[in-house]
Amino acid sequence: MSPEAPIPASTASWLPVILDSAGPFSQPVTTLAWVIFTGGFVILGIVIAALTIALFGSPRLKARLGGEKAIWIGGFAFPVVVLTILLIWGLWLTSHLSAQRITGDEMRVRVIGEMWWWRVHYLDENGRETFRDANELHIPVGQPVLLDLQAADVIHSFWVPRLAGKMDMIPGRTNRLLIQADAPGVYHGQCAEYCGGPHALMGFVVVAHAPEDFARWQAARAPAPAAQGSAARGADLFMSSGCAACHTIRGSPADGLAGPDLTHVGSRRSLGAGILPNNKGTLAGWIADSQALKPGNRMPAYHQFDGEELRALADYLASRQ
């Protein structure tokens, strides 16, 4: 439901996401994961070989395996050396991911974890807010983007596995994380710190655009024009049924702050914080009974609309591009 050219979903690979890095800030995690997996298999091979000798080997080999020297080497020296090297190398490798790399020229976005969705505030170079969105982050490819990560209520953790490691979002603190996508695509994220009931349904979407597409996307951030037809009826219902108490739609009287900003909800790729496809059908289903889809989320089920009213509301929200 986006006006831009379709962007490939970047989930085509058979690899698990942590082994399928899509940018420089997730690459060290992928490298480390491969080394640990491979090392683990090599050590498993050694243990199986030792076990085979212990069970079926000649008495002479068995005696050597059971000797004091083998215990000192295999049981003490080997783990100490391997784990020390791994620790030092791992710390060195991942130190490149810390905020030391921040140059100050990055595009900046503040992402605030809420129970159970994400506020997304785009910032200018002086850290002033330019506009607000929710549950979806748009970035240009090939350049680092600096995220100021905060939490409004409890601890959350921001994790888009193909773009960066995890970073906790802690109430009262701002943690910084750099992300970068090297190819256009849609990258999925997930809250990675248990934050109550529907934590597992707290998803996120990062959309990486080619630079010219990103400029076009930025230019199109003006609120959608006034609704027509059925959508206009939906707009009236939105204002009169209490929706506006929690949701903002810029360019309309709706200015609630408790729930996600819906100014551009029709152009988002997902609904309910990265969990459902976004179309008029899922919009109607969400409005009427979001509690069936994301039990415990803070939006009540709205059972008072008749069929036409529900469709009018879905039309209105789908038209907020």
């Binding site: 609904l271 496809p277 109607a284 969400w286 009427a288 069936a292």
Partner: peptide, 20 residues
């Protein structure tokens, strides 16, 4: 892909499983 499960309980699709 379309998320019909947002409103319907669908055989063979565990989630979503809507009630609308």
């Amino acid at each position: 892909r379309l998320g019909c499960g947002a409103c319907h309980d669908l055989p063979g699709i565990a989630w979503p499983s809507g009630r609308v």
